[in-house]
Each structure stands twice: as structure tokens, then as C-alpha cells.
Design a protein around this nucleic acid. Structure first.
Length: 410
DNA sequence: TCTGGGGTCCTAGGACCC
DNA sequence: TCTGGGGTCCTAGGACCC
């Protein structure tokens, strides 16, 4: 593969930075952005809060213990999605090859624009200053010959970093780098590799491939390459990205529940959320997956495959309930999730029968109102009185603007 | 440290068909 | 009736990312 110049851009503590930019009172203060529900964790901590040891994923009381003056800010999805979309759009000024990895991260293949903008570092400086100027947010940028190394580089200096790894520096940089710094090596893989006395990327890259494939299968080959800093995967823009493969929602309930009525109500709500998003994407799914987490945190899923593709909330709900009916509920339920997979992208055929047509019309009318005025403005009767759907839903940092395939570029 | 939510990819085993 | 093999679809679960 020809030599490339890839850039990875990572917005620093994105949600917290957006909040601090929007509210001068929060600037320079330790703040954490949390979900809207009671059983929530910290989604992002500002750097002022991180100085106290406060981290993403931590529980609120833990954060307050570490930093009593910490300010809690409930997440405001619209603000983050709006800012993210604008920033991602700006990246297209420098190359059409922009791969949105999450709401606050993207890769840019700038190989073809180097001459036009006077080199990768110049592009990085321009991007940094524009993000700072327009949004008052800092970012860390890594520049390297591939995505793996560019991401590694952007992690190396935070906040407001710019790290370049040149092709002839790769082995020097990786020699002492702990393996868990590589994107793709998580806790379990790190432990498994440590059992084989492999702790650094240097050691991983030199390891006998056979040893790795014996332990990890085909992933072993990939691990060795990662240790050597090899990664041929292209930067894939939204237009070229694969279509979405599943659509799902899950929620930790306000309190653990046991009664079937309550379970059904949540399932209807989740089915409506899934159905609405599926219809917006113009996909339908043949397989319905139900996830249950008990109060002891044990989690399992069960799925069923239908004869037809569905995306009406009602059909998804019926499928989810059918699965529920095959399960012996053993404990109070802490979390419920509904997901459709096995998707097809064909637009739904116009229903043949009059009542089907009416139903389809009603579904799209409800969608239109909800799109305009917000989720659950109109909804099924049994959801009324269930105040669980009130607040804005927790948005995860992995969220992508309107789904991968719907990112607007122009 | 009683621990969120949305995804993708991979593996392994079973059913079924030719 | 016995045997083997390949392909495909389905289910369940795990690891990983943000």
C-alpha cells in the first residue's frame, strides 16, 4: 500500500467542554456531565475534575467523594450532536476522506491534500485553531502513516496535543509502549497477553505468530501486526461506509422490577424507540433480540427470527413479548433491551389491505409529529403515566450523528 | 467503587439441505 | 440403513470500542 498520512482528531472531554463553552460560570471549574436518570454514571469529566481523579464511568458519589465541589451537569444531547455535526462538517474542508468514529472522534486521510495545505501539521494547526475559535474546545491530534498509529498518537498528549509519528519512528515509539494503549486491546486481551509475558508493543511485534494464533485464532495474526504498527485499514467516509447492521435500545430501569405489566410497558417503550429509529433509517429487521439484566447484574439475551422483516413498533413489541414468554424470570430486572438485526434496506411495500394502510399511515403521522416536537410527543396509550420516558435519553460517547449512514456531508 | 448505552465483530454449536 | 462433507441459517455469548 502506498504511504499515507492519516490524522486522528479527539475532542478533549467533549461533553464537558461544550458545557463550559456554553456557560462561562462553568469555565475552569471541575464539572461532570451525567445522564438524566438517577442510576447514572459519569459520562465525561472536565480536566479540572480529572485532576481530582474523577473519571468516565465513575458513580456520582465516588466523584463527590474525590472532589466535593464538583458541579453536576445533566447531559444535553442536542447541544452535543449539534456541535459535533458542525465540527465534522468542517473536517471536510481538508479532505473528503473523513471517518466519524464517535461523537467526538474522527480520522482524516489527508494524503491527497498535503500539497494544497502545506503539510499535515499545518492542517492540524488550522483545525485546532478553528475548533478553538468557533467552539472554544481543544482537541488532541495524532498524525501517522495509518489509523492505528494516528489514534495512538492522539492519545499520547492530552489535552490540546499534537503528536506526529513518522514512518521511521514507529519501532522506536512502540518498543516500550504498553500493549493496552493500542485501540483493539482491551482488559481481557491485555491480561491474556501478559500471561504470555507480553507487555509492550515491541514484545508483541516480535512474538512468534504461531504462539499468538494458537491462543487467539486469526486475531493472533492481527495482534502481531498491531505490535509492529501495521494497519492497512482505509479511512472510510460516511458515503462508503457499510450500512447499519442493527438498531437497538436498552435502559437501566429506575428501580428493579418484577411485575409483568411493568415489563411490558418498558418493552413497548423500547420497541417504539427502536421502531422509530429503524423507520427513520428506512430499515426493517427479521431478528428481534431481547436483553435482560437481573439485579445481580447477570445479563443474557435471547433472540428470535421472524418470517418477515418488521419495523413497526407494534410488530417489534409483539416479537419481544413472544421472547419474554419463553423466559423464566428468576430475579428482579434491572435492565431491558430490544434490538433488531438481520436488517434489510428495501423500502416497505405499500400494504395491501385497507386496515394495514391505515395503520401504516398512522405510524408515519406519529413519526412526523415526534420528529418535529421531540420523542414521545404522541405515543401509545399505555406509555402515558409511565414517567420513565420523560427525560432526554442518555447519549453515549459512541453515538454518531444521525447514524453512520446519515451523516450529512454537503 | 453495587457499576450507562449503542454498536461491531468473532466463535462455537446445532439444524437442515444437498 | 450406514457413512462423509460442504454450505447456510440460526442462537448464544464474549470482547471490544466510544
Amino acid at each position: 500500500m502506498r504511504s499515507r498520512t492519516v490524522m486522528h482528531i479527539d475532542m478533549n472531554s467533549f461533553f464537558a467542554s461544550v458545557e463550559q463553552a456554553a456557560n462561562p460560570f462553568l469555565k475552569g471549574k471541575p464539572i461532570v456531565v451525567t445522564g438524566s436518570q438517577q442510576r447514572t454514571v459519569i459520562l465525561t469529566a472536565s480536566y479540572e475534575a480529572r485532576a481530582f481523579g474523577v473519571k468516565t464511568g465513575m458513580m456520582l458519589h465516588e466523584a463527590k467523594r474525590l472532589c466535593p465541589e464538583v458541579i453536576l451537569v445533566p447531559a444535553d444531547n442536542r447541544k452535543y450532536t449539534h456541535t459535533s455535526s458542525q465540527i465534522m462538517k468542517m473536517f471536510h474542508d481538508y479532505t473528503p476522506l473523513v471517518e466519524v468514529f464517535s461523537i467526538d472522534e474522527a480520522w482524516l486521510d489527508v494524503t491527497g491534500s498535503l500539497a494544497l495545505f502545506g503539510g499535515a501539521e499545518n492542517i492540524a494547526y488550522k483545525i485546532k485553531s478553528r475548533i478553538k475559535y468557533h467552539f472554544d474546545i481543544t482537541c488532541s491530534i495524532g498524525i501517522a502513516p495509518n489509523k492505528l498509529l494516528a489514534k495512538l498518537a492522539s492519545e499520547m498528549k492530552k489535552p490540546d496535543g499534537l503528536v506526529v509519528i513518522k514512518a521511521d519512528e514507529v519501532s522506536r515509539v512502540l518498543e516500550q509502549m504498553p500493549i493496552k494503549e493500542l485501540c483493539g486491546i482491551g482488559r481481557k486481551t491485555e491480561r491474556a497477553l501478559q500471561m504470555m509475558s507480553i507487555r509492550t508493543c515491541g514484545e508483541l511485534g516480535r512474538c512468534d505468530e504461531k504462539r499468538l494464533t494458537n491462543r487467539f485464532g486469526i486475531v493472533g495474526t492481527q495482534l502481531k501486526q498491531m505490535g509492529q504498527g501495521i494497519d492497512d485499514s482505509p479511512v472510510i467516509s460516511a458515503e462508503d461506509a457499510d450500512e447499519v447492521k442493527s438498531v437497538g435500545h436498552s435502559m437501566t430501569l429506575k428501580r428493579d422490577i418484577t411485575f409483568r405489566n411493568e415489563i411490558l410497558r418498558y418493552l413497548l417503550q423500547l420497541s417504539e424507540m427502536v421502531g422509530r429509529r429503524a423507520r427513520r433509517y428506512e430499515v426493517a429487521g427479521k431478528t428481534i433480540h431481547l436483553t435482560i439484566r437481573y439485579s445481580d447484574f447477570s445479563t443474557f439475551g435471547k433472540q428470535t427470527t421472524l418470517k418477515n422483516y418488521v419495523n413497526k413498533s407494534e410488530d417489534i413489541y409483539v416479537g419481544a413479548v413472544a421472547i419474554l414468554d419463553t423466559i423464566d424470570i428468576e430475579q428482579p430486572i434491572r435492565l431491558l433491551g430490544v434490538r433488531i438485526t438481520n436488517l434489510c434496506y428495501h423500502r416497505e411495500q405499500l400494504p395491501l389491505f385497507e386496515d394495514e394502510r391505515k395503520k401504516a399511515f398512522m405510524v408515519s403521522a406519529m413519526d412526523a409529529v415526534n420528529d418535529k416536537y421531540g420523542d414521545f410527543t404522541v405515543t401509545y396509550g399505555s406509555l402515558l403515566g409511565n414517567n420513565s420516558q420523560s427525560g432526554s435519553h442518555v447519549i453515549s460517547p459512541a453515538w454518531k450523528p444521525e447514524g453512520i449512514r446519515n451523516v450529512q456531508v454537503t
